[in-house]
Design a protein around this nucleic acid. Structure first.
Lengths: 154, 154
DNA sequence: TTCACTGCAAATGCTTTGCAGCGCC
DNA sequence: GGCGCTGCAAAGCATTTGCAGTGAA
């Protein structure tokens, strides 16, 4: 199964969640609020610590369960960082886009790349692939971290 | 650290391996041979089991160490599957390139994308990011699997 | 002979799960 | 009230690491 920032992919399976009901609990609201207040991707662990420091504690297991279900419902964007950890973020930009991530502080910038989209589609078509989706992530050091690096503090 | 199919990134650290010497051991040869006989990506665990069944057993820890060092030396291609596991493959194409993967059978096609490379560099530069690397993966159904899907066998 | 490489086993760290109690609908 | 949701603690797993023995150069 493809991961990360994935575009649609024509007519994959079903689109309607159709799952069980979804109760609005204090924990779920806390996680949701935390995600809203964040601009960057967070791993479940990070979100957990964040909520702890913030007082709105939620058990780690629950944090995993909530984020996973939100991802299943498409309420958040999921991708994997370089360590293979799943990281989540409520996406500001609606629609398909990619990310420019800082490998040190995690800061993320959303970028659109129409050219890459068409390139991907073309390449796939040329090889006879169908139901195409793709992931594109750019890693680097953001301006701040680049400065730190230059100053020898990294 | 960025993962997967990564390009250089301007002037990152050193390019020359320059590492310590590399002894040619039985285990290393076994892993190398196994990779040569494979067309698809394998996780370290899979490769480990494969070597076990094949008699040329290598300890799991060693398998991890060997694959990791081969990846560091650029002898194999690394990327992460949807579960966040690192998967490796000996690459036919030398140099930087990306993959077009079948999400059903795992078949991979190597593709080059100079345009994407320059796009990534430009985007990163525009946002002040340095030491850039990127990952690009395209997922879809290969021709064979597309046919199966169409025939209702998938 | 030397020092990288191995194997083994213990240790990590992320993620999942079983189970009993709690609280939203 | 019923049943999904939580917490907690106990697994589960992939991956890493310490250490002493082994073997390639």
């Amino acid at each position: 199964m493809p991961h990360g920032t994935t575009n649609d992919g024509s007519a994959i399976t079903e689109l309607a969640p159709a799952g069980k009901e979804q109760r609005v609990t204090k924990q779920r609201r806390a996680v949701s609020a935390a995600l809203d207040s964040l601009d960057d991707f967070v791993s479940t662990q990070e979100l957990y610590r964040l909520l702890q420091n913030q007082g709105t504690s939620v058990s780690l297991a629950t944090a995993y369960r909530i984020l996973q279900s939100m991802a299943d419902d498409g309420q958040v964007d999921v991708l994997r960082n370089g360590d293979g950890e799943a990281v989540y973020r409520r996406c500001a930009v609606t629609g398909h886009h990619h990310h420019l991530l800082c490998r040190n502080c995690g800061k993320a910038v959303e970028v659109e790349a129409p050219a890459v989209e068409t390139w991907a589609s073309r390449i796939a078509a040329e090889h006879g692939y169908t139901e195409v989706a793709h992931t594109v992530e750019i890693f680097g050091l953001c301006p701040e971290c680049s400065a730190l690096r230059a100053a020898g503090n990294l």
